[in-house]
Write a protein that binds this DNA or RNA. Structure first.
Length: 197
DNA sequence: GGAATGATGTACT
DNA sequence: GTACATCATTCCG
């Protein structure tokens, strides 16, 4: 089994845009309960940056509340929230504690644990497993209980890229928002087949 | 207290 | 392309 050492804390210390770009090519892993090996791994191919309070589309915009508490907490933790009453999405908290910046993970290229992902998703095609923020959360078994999870030592971790690939990063507008919709804060790997539509 | 809203996915036309 | 499921959070009164 491969070593699954997480990235260092400094990985998350930059602004959300920096980290959103840095996350592309890194891996998101959900560890198997009780073991030091990952059961599920996906390569991050699409992210969105959500900035501090002046970003009208950011959950941190209203200021600290019960829901967004993790976003104002320590960088390098997860922020999980419910959307549209039925799905969940997973974010990586970035920057400095108290600021309220995070990166939404929107799509993964499945690398390990495809069978379990397919069972959870009810679909077999690899492209249907993690090509959307709520899809990947379902495939990886992430839930509200992971809100605030420590990505350096917890059950969910960010691992550095396993191999160098030369892929260009494309920046476009964020998906599914109405406010601040014109800002180019969505990033994905050009030509990657696992990016959401 | 009540109503509107939303960082989505699926099914159907 | 459009409809709809479904509910916590937020904002207004």
């Amino acid at each position: 089994m491969p070593a699954l050492s997480a990235v260092e804390a400094s990985f998350f210390a930059g602004g959300a845009v920096r980290v959103a770009r840095r996350l592309l090519g890194a891996r998101l892993a959900v560890l198997a309960p009780g073991r030091g090996e990952a059961a599920l791994i996906g390569r991050i191919v699409e992210t969105e940056a959500y900035l501090a309070r002046d970003d009208l589309a950011s959950h941190s915009h209203p200021g600290p509340t019960r829901r967004n508490a993790s976003m104002f907490g320590r960088p390098g933790r997860g922020y999980v929230y419910r959307i549209y009453g039925l799905h969940h999405c997973f974010n990586v908290v970035t920057g400095r504690e108290g600021v309220g910046e995070a990166v939404l993970v929107r799509a993964l290229e499945p690398l390990a644990g495809l069978a379990l992902m397919a069972r959870r998703r009810g679909r077999d095609a690899p492209r249907e497993l993690c090509s959307g923020p709520a899809k990947l959360v379902q495939a990886l078994g992430i839930g509200p209980e992971h809100d605030g999870v420590d990505l350096l030592r917890g059950a969910i971790r960010i691992l550095p890229p396993e191999s160098r690939r030369r892929e260009r990063v494309v920046a476009t507008t964020r998906v599914g928002i109405r406010k601040a919709a014109e800002l180019p804060l969505r990033f994905y790997l050009a030509g990657n087949r696992f990016v959401s539509r």
